[in-house]
Structures are given as structure tokens and as C-alpha cells.
Design a protein around this nucleic acid. Structure first.
Lengths: 351, 351
DNA sequence: CTGAAAGCGCTTACAG
DNA sequence: CTGAAAGCGCTTACAG
């Protein structure tokens, strides 16, 4: 059992509260220098560290944040989490990680558990449009920040990219390469990224004088498997598209696999663009043209927005929207970018 | 502010302790049925959930575990974490994630912070041989389990693979393909996986009548960058090796890049074997021959060993060692395995 | 059978 | 200036 203030007080022959004041460097404390020295020596000798649970109960702050995401094995969320930890850890916070696998039920039950634990704040990267869980967070006055996906356009603190613009850039790139039939692997209509990236795709088509064709839009969700299935459907069309904009890099990876199995070459027979620029994107063969967003910054900025709210005690509606940037690689232009370029390739840390 | 037992007691006109007993379904509680109903209705109406911090202080258990790893953006650790969460979450635990970037100082400071928070247990995947932090965990009687790397062969509960065997399988495979000069990208001498995999490599050479050549062993650490650098050194030798066994998949990925830059074809000019079988391995071009270990199971089994200790209150020395399995793919045998085979490829979850 | 009290370990406003 | 007390919200052994 770790040492307590009570024991320390007994050993130093002072009241526990005095030990507490010395340990916390209370500036209003006047105390005989010798006594102070005695206590400080004891503190050092026993490596005293206050019980965080007791402290949390008294101070009503746990110094714990939580990150709620669909799945940490998706590299997008791993990078996002690192951003959060790197932003929060220097301020003394530890971070809980909760995977929902995209299930609203699991999201809900995680949030309730986090609330019962009195985490100081939540970063939510798995929210839906009009998400009742988000309303619940607001109602409970739990500090939170949404990342990547928003729930209500104007009501929540949010960090993400301009999905509409990013999708337009991606689709315009394909149109400018001369593609007339451009397919879209679409996200879900219940998720902001799904809606906005689809809208951006349609806008770019119109801007380039291309008539939208409903058959060219297939819902893929956000998984590699879903991407493969949806891409296979596009590729089986009588007049199949010559290019695809995929709602995320992982669905684009699925489309790669589908193309290979159908004997289509990328980019010659089928150009493919993704979204996010996860580490995998730059080292595929051919490397994936995609919309780059600063994933790590999403996390660290979200952490800062959250800590601001915690410190001020005021909820926030600040929105930080990063500009997406198109990265042209070999999946749309033969020879563009260099696969696994040592400069471009991300450095992975130690096993 | 969430509702407390005190308020609930006042509203139901009973003592707070009675509310607590009803909420916790205390079997020894005898109470008038009507009173019970009134309290239960109140509990439901207010969605009462006990304050976990207060509960933790009283019960001396926080229902929080921590996972300490080098870096979650390494897919190996992401899969490991999922295993832990999947194993612990059904038992009511939440899991803190701490990245050390391989720094003993950061590891130390994370552990101290976790101890101050009174986490119920720690899963440590970043330990060193004779790690003072591990000794400290033992000394503080904090329940813990080491994963993947051990610290003292016989003293710690541990989950991992038979690194010696795995390295022998990998190296024997290369020898049996006819390679006479086989290089090794070695881990660190301070890490169990580094030591054992190097030893397995040497053992396999001897078993196949090949004389170990010190110039063919280059320390790479565990990063892609380190792997690229070390591989470049091997490839620049006068009598360069025709095959390489890399201590992990990430270092093997680095070796791929180095080979490409030096104009060497894989596997024709340079066969490469990795270790771990991370998701990336099966979808590289060519796909990576590697030693498969059940990463997710590492995590879930470690969680179970940890929960066992927490429940019994007894420290454990149980060791669970999985059998590694060689997966032959295109990086050693032309055409072997199928890159991005839809069956073999892991499914990534929703964005 | 139920209520009241003690106590988990801490911090801080208050009294002496 | 320092000590003693209250109180954060809970659980449970104990007394009535």
C-alpha cells in the first residue's frame, strides 16, 4: 500500500493537512523552516504521490480524457489518437481509448461508462448526423470535441477538414485528366463525411459539365471490404466508369483489390482516388492519389479545444477546419509520385 | 451535476445508504416492497449511476487498466490494443493507452502517473531486459503482464511467441531455398525479441551448415527507417547477402525500400523475411514472407492473465507462449501467396 | 430489518 | 501562522 498523508503526518509529527500543503507547495503556508525540511525529506524518501482517486473526488477533476473512435487498427485513428495524446499528455492528462466498431449502441454504452468515471472530457470521432449521443453529451455538460465527423453543423466544437472541397478537388482532378465517367464509392448518408464528400463529388461533376449518373454512385461504407464490393459493382456495369473517387483510403484499397481481380490495370483501365492520405497510401503499388489531411493535427488540435473548455469551464462552438490538399500519385497518373519514396514514407516507431 | 445518493435519499425519504443498497441489489437488504418500488422508480427516472471516482476510493478498485506500448501507429500495437480492449471491456474495464516511443524515461513517467491514478493493472509491451520499471511494478505490487517482450525470463507473467523458434523457421526457410549468404537486420541487445531472434537466426545457420559471418548482422532497431539504413549497408557489401531475415515486418518494409532504391529485385536478387505478419505484410508487392503470430490474441490473453491476478489478488508467473508459424509469400518465392488476397487481407473497420 | 456512522485519501475554508 | 474539521460520494460493518 502506498503511503498516505495520514501516515506521513504521524511520522513528521504534524497534521496531515500540513503535509498536504507542503506537498502542493501552498504559497499561503507559513511554517518553520526546519519542519518544512523534515517534511520535504520525508516526501522525497517515500516518493509520495497523492492518491489520484481521492484527489479526483475532492477536486472534481480526474485528469483523464477519453477518445472514442470506430477502430484503432484503422491507421487513420491510430494517427489521430497519437495527436490527442501528444497534445494532452504534457498537461498531465492520461487518455482512455474506446473502440465502437461503428455501432451506436457501443458508442452509447462507452459514453455512459466514461461519464460514470467522471472523465474530464471526451473526443468523439465516431459521431453520426443528429447523433443522440452528442445531444446527451451537451445535456450532461460533459466537455467534448467532435473530430473528422460532425453531428450538427453549428452546435459542436469540431476539428476536421473541408470535406466538400476535398471531394471536389479529387473529382476535378479526375475530370481534368479527361475522365467522363467517374464513379463514387460513397460513405453513409448518416455520416457527415459521407454526405459532404458525395456532395463535393456531384458539384465537381457539374462544374466540369458532366451529368451525374446515379448508377455511378454506390454506397461502400468505410471498410476495405465494402469498398471492394461496391467497386466490383461499378466495374461490372455495361458502361463502366474509367475512374473512381473513394470516400476514404481504405475503401480505395478495396477498389484496388477489386480492379486486380477483374484484370483491370490501375491507373490505365481504372484511375482511383482516396481520401485522408493514411500511411499506407504512399506505399501501395501504384501509390494512391488521395486527399491529404493533417490527421495528427486533428488530434492535437482537438485536445487543445477540449483542454480550453475544461480550463474555462465554458462549452465552446469553435470549429477548426483544415484545408485538404490533393496529392497526385500513380493511381491516377502513370509514374506520378514515387511509391515508398523514403522522404514521403512515414516513419514507424519501435516495435 | 449528476444526481447523488444523498439527493436520491432525500427525495425518496429514506437514508442514502438504503438507496445504495437498492441500487447495488444488496441481497441482505430487507425492505418494504413499496419503498423498494419507489426507490427503483427514482433510480430509473434519474438514470442514476454511482460516481466511479467515489466508488473507486471506497472500494480500492478503479476498473481501469493501462496498456503501455511504444507507438500505436505501428499496426502491431494497434492490433494488440484491440485484443486487450476486447478482452477487458466485457468485464467492465476501460483501458488507458500510453505511448512511450521506446523511451525508458517516458515509460517510467507513464507508469508513475498510472500508479498515482490507481489503475487496477498494467499491460506492458515496451519492456527491456532487466527493466528497472518492471522491478518497480513488482515492488509496488501493481498487477501487470508483459507482452511480446519479456524482462526476466522467469519472473513475470508473460504473453508472446517463441521468438527463438520463429527466427529459426524464418532463417531455415531461406537456407532451404538455397541461400548461402543470409543477412540479419537485428533488434536491440537490450530487448528480448532482439536477442532471441538473433540467436534463432544463428542457430538455424549452424543447423544448415552455414558459417555465421558477423558482417552479415547489422543492428536495425525496430523502425522502418532503421531497417532501410541497415539493409542498405548489407546490400553495399562486396559479397552481399542474397537473403535477409528482418527482426520485424516494419524493418523488412524498410529493406524493401532499400532494395528498390539499389535496383535489386525482391525476391530474385534479394529475398526478405519479416516477423509478426502485420496487416500490411500481406498486401505489399510482392507480399511479405513472414512469421505469423496471433497479435490480437496476445492482447486478449494478456487481459485475461491480468484480470485473473486482479480477481485473486495474487501475482502470477504464468507464461503463455504461442507457436509462431512461417507464412511463405512472394518476397522469398516468386509467385507464392497472392498479394492482397481478399481472403487473407484483413478487414479494416469503419472510418 | 433499517438507519446512522465510519472511513476510503485528499484539499482548503475556517477557527484558534 | 498552524491545526482541526468538513466534505467530495460512495459502501458496508455495526447498532438500535
Amino acid at each position: 500500500m502506498p503511503v498516505t498523508l495520514k501516515e506521513l503526518g504521524a511520522r513528521a509529527r504534524v497534521h496531515p493537512s500540513t503535509v498536504s500543503r507542503v506537498a502542493n507547495n501552498d504559497p499561503s503556508l507559513r511554517i518553520a523552516p526546519l519542519t518544512r525540511q523534515r517534511i520535504e525529506a520525508l516526501l522525497r524518501e517515500t516518493e509520495y504521490r497523492p492518491n489520484g482517486v481521492a484527489r479526483g473526488l475532492k477536486l472534481r477533476q480526474t485528469l483523464v480524457l477519453a477518445v472514442v473512435i470506430p477502430d484503432i487498427t484503422n491507421p487513420f485513428f491510430a494517427a489521430l489518437f497519437r495527436g490527442v495524446e501528444d497534445g494532452a499528455s504534457p498537461h498531465g492528462y492520461n487518455v482512455l481509448l474506446c473502440n465502437t466498431d461503428g455501432s451506436p449502441q457501443r458508442q452509447r454504452s462507452h459514453l455512459q461508462s466514461l461519464h460514470a468515471r467522471r472523465v474530464d472530457g471526451v473526443i468523439l470521432a465516431s459521431s453520426f448526423l443528429k447523433d443522440p449521443t452528442v445531444r446527451w453529451l451537451r445535456h450532461q455538460r460533459i466537455p467534448y470535441v467532435l473530430v473528422n465527423r460532425f453531428s450538427d453543423e453549428d452546435h459542436d466544437p469540431f476539428v476536421g477538414s473541408d470535406d466538400l472541397l476535398g471531394a471536389r478537388l479529387a473529382t476535378a482532378h479526375l475530370a481534368e485528366l479527361g475522365h467522363r465517367r467517374i464513379g463514387h464509392l460513397a460513405g453513409k448518408p448518416t455520416v457527415s463525411t459521407g454526405v459532404l464528400r458525395r456532395r463535393g463529388y456531384l458539384a465537381a461533376l457539374t462544374e466540369h459539365g458532366l451529368a451525374p449518373d446515379p448508377r455511378l454512385v454506390v454506397e461502400s461504407g468505410y471498410t476495405e471490404e465494402g469498398g471492394a464490393r461496391a467497386a466490383a459493382r461499378l466495374m461490372a456495369l455495361d458502361e463502366r466508369p474509367t475512374a473512381i473517387f473513394a470516400v476514404t483510403d481504405m475503401t480505395a484499397v478495396g477498389a484496388f483489390g477489386a480492379a486486380r481481380r477483374m484484370g483491370l490495370r490501375v491507373p490505365e483501365d481504372m484511375a482511383i482516388v482516396g481520401y485522408n492520405d493514411i500511411p499506407l497510401a504512399s506505399r501501395m503499388m501504384p501509390a494512391l492519389t488521395t486527399v491529404h489531411v493533417p490527421i495528427h493535427d486533428f488530434g492535437s488540435v482537438a485536445a487543445r479545444l477540449l483542454l480550453d473548455q475544461i480550463e474555462t469551464g465554458e462549452p465552446s462552438r469553435r470549429r477548426v477546419i483544415f484545408n485538404p490538399e490533393l496529392i497526385v500519385r500513380g493511381s491516377t497518373v502513370v509514374g506520378a509520385g514515387s511509391p515508398a519514396d523514403p522522404q514521403a514514407a512515414p516513419v514507424f516507431a519501435t516495435e
